[in-house]
Amino acid sequence: MALELPDHLREITFLIVDDMSFYRSLVEQTLGNLGHVGKIYSAKDLKEAINIVNEVYKTGGRIDFVIADYHLSDSTGVELAKKMRAQKVLKNIPIVIFSTDDNSNNIIEAIDAGVDNFFFKPIKDEILLEKINFCWNKRNNPK
């Protein structure tokens, strides 16, 4: 199987939230590896993420997919999920979180709060692809 996003996911808009710019660019690079050519917004923390979302929606744009670090400098993935799921327009956007440690409790809490899936660092092309596919199908093709 080619490690590439299906055609309908190549041009979707991603929002990546991580306090380390290095890791943000790593995620962007991985998405590029998977054949993504659409827009990517980057935020260093929750506050910035919210600002970006507001700005994007104000100008008629949209966010299709969120990839976020669990540990944010001003918050966690749980907060992010809660905030997003509380807003009508963001309610159905797939969220994947990642974490450097494997503290399962945090991840479980985040999923309980509305996160769709997760992966552990280091990021791997096939894992990210699998998670994006799963979350997209779950949110956009509910059974």
């Binding site: 399962s104 999923i111 309980d112 899936n117 997760f118 998670k131 779950k138």
Partner: peptide, 20 residues
């Protein structure tokens, strides 16, 4: 919570199993 997420099939079992 983990068990509940598994039984409500929030994510595939093989995704959720490593969190146990």
């Amino acid at each position: 919570k983990w068990a509940n997420l598994i039984f409500t099939a929030v994510a595939p079992f093989e995704h959720m199993a490593p969190l146990g």
